[in-house]
Computed example of a mutant assay.
Amino acid sequence: MSESPSDIDRIAPTRRPDERPVMYQRWRHLLFLHWSLPVDVVAPLLPKGLTLDTFDGRAWIGLVPFTMRGVRPRGLPAVGFLSDFHETNVRTYVHAGGKDPGVWFFSLEAANAIAVRLARAWFKLPYHYARMSLDLAPAGGSLAYRSERRWPPPTPASCAVRCTPRGPAAASVPGSFQHFLVERYFLYSQAHGELFRGQVHHAPYQVREADVEGLEETLLAASGLPRPAEPPLALFSEGVDVDVFRLRRVAP
Rank of each mutant, 00 (worst) to 15 (best):
A221I: 05
I11Q: 15
P168D: 06
L125V: 13
R58W: 12
A144F: 00
V242I: 15
R150N: 03
G62C: 06
P17Q: 11
L76S: 09
D9M: 08
T51A: 10
Q199E: 15
L63S: 09
S172G: 09
G49R: 07
T88F: 00
R248G: 04
V200R: 07
H86P: 03
R16G: 06
S133C: 01
G75P: 06
R26M: 00
T88S: 12
A203H: 10
Y93G: 08
A115C: 03
L76G: 04
R69V: 01
D84S: 14
M23F: 01
Y185W: 07
L30W: 05
G214W: 02
L37R: 13
V244C: 09
R149P: 05
A171H: 12
G97S: 10
L50A: 08
L225M: 08
A43Q: 14
A113R: 15
S158H: 14
R162A: 15
F177M: 15
P65V: 00
D84F: 08
Q178Y: 00
A210F: 01
V182G: 08
Y188F: 12
P77W: 02
R58S: 13
L215G: 10
P154G: 11
D40S: 09
A96Y: 02
F66K: 12
V64K: 08
R246Y: 08
T92A: 13
F245E: 13
C159N: 15
F245L: 05
P73N: 08
L219V: 06
K124G: 00
L33Y: 07
G167L: 08
Y188S: 13
